[in-house]
């Protein structure tokens, strides 16, 4: 009982994070390009800037650049990465969630950091995919490569994000 009382803020934070993740997954399953404008529009802008392309919104498929022959569609939104990043940041920050206020602050920070990190990592992933699309791959399966590239960039980005967050947190602790 005392353990529950001692960790109630952490338990509540994990429950909220899991609820957000489950709700986010359900939302993403049925989301259209227009629903995902909040994440696809800035991603398309960043990808245009990085690749030198011009991705414009088209109702239905998403953000397209027909000159390159590439569409940034809802499955490219990176919502799964955002949810994984949010969950990892919340789990990693549990140690500091000693009060309700600290837990709330950490949850909000985790959501904001996850959003920004998604824009960065997803832009890198799509820019690599565009470069692969422009390259002759000697008959290799493009869909397979695109999928593997996504897993490696997303998981690598998640590890890098978590490592940076941990390094910043431990540096702050040393200065405190």
């Amino acid at each position: 009982m005392s353990w529950l009382r001692e960790h109630r803020c952490r338990i509540a934070a994990v429950a909220i994070a899991l609820a957000v993740v489950v709700a986010g997954k359900q939302y993403y399953r049925a989301a259209t390009a227009d629903d995902l404008r909040w994440i696809l529009a800035p991603t398309a802008k960043l990808v245009s800037w990085v690749t030198g392309g011009n991705f414009v919104y088209e109702a239905g498929p998403g953000w397209a650049d027909y000159k390159i022959g590439f569409i940034i569609a809802p499955p490219c939104a990176g919502v799964n990465f955002a949810l994984a990043a949010f969950l990892a940041l919340v789990l990693g920050g549990l140690g500091a969630m000693t009060t309700a206020r600290a837990a709330a602050r950490r949850l909000i920070a985790a959501a904001a950091i996850a959003y920004v990190a998604t824009l960065v990592v997803n832009t890198i992933r799509i820019a690599i995919a565009v470069a692969m699309h422009r390259t002759d791959l000697n008959g290799m399966d493009r869909n397979e490569l695109h999928s593997i590239e996504g897993i490696v960039v997303y998981f690598g980005g998640l590890c890098a994000l978590y490592w940076v967050a941990r390094a910043i947190a431990s540096r702050r602790q040393q200065h405190a």
Binding site: N80, A84, G92, R166
Partner: peptide
Amino acid sequence: RWLLVPIAAYLVITLVLPIAN
């Protein structure tokens, strides 16, 4: 050991929840 958290978070999103669905 720190890798356990990102691995767990990634696998929950990419495998556990899809299996649950």
